[in-house]
Structure formats: structure tokens, C-alpha cells
């Protein structure tokens, strides 16, 4: 894995020295600020609050405000990873350095995850604010962030893969957004389909119910296996795609 840290550091440098990371983090923070504000208002007007339908559950996956930015922002983080290197040709210097393809893919993926995690850091403030109004179960907060991380990692892995199949950042973004949206909508089948195999499948891939469980503190190993699969598979495909360029 030699070269991993060098590339990881350079990727972070590229994110934070250009406006991209700041624009994305800013957009995300504004969005979540609005989200939090609306939640607080609606809970303030509610007569009673049940124990597992509190503001924490609502904030982490209780409504579409949680999912929508992920579907847009994750592909925006990843779109440049390989597409830009191919367009500018820097991929040639990168891939002729003594570093293996898996290390390159993991370093870029890791840097994107780091940006994604940075984006979520300000949301801890909301929890601190909520704590002043009432009790917060930090274990539930922990599992919620596990869900945030798992879903983000999936989407970023898919985005990394799509960035490797084209030279155009825009196309990489569109492809990743479509695929991520597809997976998300498939999960919604859980709520619309009749009982049967199709509904079971949908419920298995449903990110909505995954967040629903995790934000109640339920950690289901099947969900984690699913997350790991949706992270590992796209990254594997990315590695193969990059190796395939050489033989084109």
C-alpha cells in the first residue's frame, strides 16, 4: 500500500485548496440548518413526542431532507476523482509511479470520505443545541452517525466508480446521481409494493429503513453486510476499470 498516504494527502489538498470542498460543505450546512430549523419548529408545536420518534430520529433519516442532499452531494464530491486526472492527463504520471491501482483507488475514496465526514461535523452542534432542551441518548447518536457514514461510503464508492468510466466530470456526476437515486428508489419499493419477494428485496436494500433502525439504536448485521458490499463492489469495479484502460 505504498503511496496511499501520499495520494490521500494530495487529494485532500486538491479538495481544500480549490473552492470545491468549501462550496459543497457550505451548501450542505445551509441545507441541514434549514432542515434542523424546520424540525425544531414542528416539534415545538407538537403536543406529545413519542420516545422513538424524537427529533434525533427525524433528523437522521426521518424525512426526505436527509436523503436528498446525499444523492446530490456525494456524486459532486467524487466526480473529479478520476475524470479530472484523465482529462488533464495527470493520470499518466500517477499510474507510472511505483504505486498499485488498489492503493490509488482507496486513497481517492478515502479522501472523498474525509470530505464527506467534514461536511457532517457541524451537525454535532445541533445535537448540542437539542441537549439543552432535553435528554439525548448518545448511543443512538452513535448508531445514527454509523448510518450516515455507511450510506455516504456507499454513495461515494458508487461515485468513485462512475468517475473512473468517463473523462467528463459532468457525466461522472450524472451517472453517479442516477445510480444512487436508483438504489434509493429501489429501497422505497418497501413502502409501495405488495407483500412478497420483491418487497422483501426492496426492504433489504432500503436505506430509509436502515436509517430508521440505526436512529433507534438497532444495529442489524445484515445492513452492515449490505453496506460493505455496496462499498467493496464499486471499488473493485473501479480498480478493474483503471487496469482495463491500459489494455484499451
Amino acid at each position: 500500500m505504498s503511496g496511499f498516504w501520499a495520494i490521500f494527502k494530495r487529494e485532500l489538498f486538491a479538495y481544500f485548496v480549490t473552492p470545491l470542498a468549501y462550496v459543497l460543505v457550505l451548501a450542505f450546512v445551509c441545507w441541514q440548518g434549514l432542515h434542523f430549523y424546520l424540525l425544531v419548529r414542528s416539534f415545538a408545536q407538537a403536543a406529545t413526542v413519542s420516545i422513538d420518534q424524537g427529533p434525533v430520529q427525524a433528523f437522521f433519516g426521518g424525512d426526505v431532507f436527509y436523503y436528498l442532499p446525499l444523492i446530490i452531494i456525494c456524486p459532486a464530491i467524487t466526480m473529479r476523482l478520476f475524470a479530472e486526472e484523465r482529462r488533464s492527463g495527470t493520470i499518466e504520471s500517477l499510474m507510472t509511479a511505483p504505486v498499485g491501482t488498489p492503493a490509488v483507488v482507496l486513497a481517492k475514496f478515502g479522501a472523498a470520505i474525509f470530505v464527506y465526514a467534514t461536511m457532517w461535523v457541524p451537525t454535532i452542534l445541533y445535537l448540542i443545541i437539542m441537549r439543552r432542551a432535553g435528554e439525548i441518548d448518545w448511543r443512538i447518536v452513535g448508531t445514527s452517525y454509523l448510518g450516515v457514514f455507511g450510506i455516504g461510503a456507499q454513495y461515494i464508492a458508487i461515485g468513485t466508480m462512475m468517475s473512473a468510466v468517463t473523462r467528463s466530470q459532468l457525466i461522472a456526476f450524472m451517472l453517479a446521481a442516477i445510480l444512487v437515486l436508483g438504489v434509493f428508489l429501489l429501497g422505497l419499493g418497501e413502502f409501495t409494493l405488495d407483500e412478497g419477494l420483491a418487497r422483501d428485496t426492496c426492504s433489504y436494500v432500503s436505506i430509509w429503513s436502515q436509517m430508521g433502525e440505526l436512529s433507534k439504536g438497532i444495529v442489524d448485521s445484515r445492513r452492515l453486510v449490505f453496506d460493505a458490499t455496496l462499498i467493496a463492489l464499486p471499488l473493485f469495479v473501479t480498480t478493474r476499470t483503471i487496469d482495463a484502460w491500459r489494455w484499451g
Binding site: 503511496g3 501520499a6 494530495r10 489538498f13 492527463g89 500517477l94 509511479a97
Partner: peptide
């Protein structure tokens, strides 16, 4: 390489530091 692709957002010293690290 022929077209000498480089990362434009880096300074020369930073770029060479990255490459030395990578190598």
C-alpha cells in the same frame, strides 16, 4: 510523459514533494 501533465493547483515545490513521497 509527452504532454507533461501536472497539477496546476500545486506549487512546484509542493508538487515535487508529493511526487517524491509517492516514489
Amino acid at each position: 510523459p509527452e504532454a507533461v501533465p501536472l497539477y496546476g493547483e500545486m506549487r512546484v515545490r509542493e508538487y515535487l514533494r508529493f511526487r517524491a513521497d509517492l516514489k
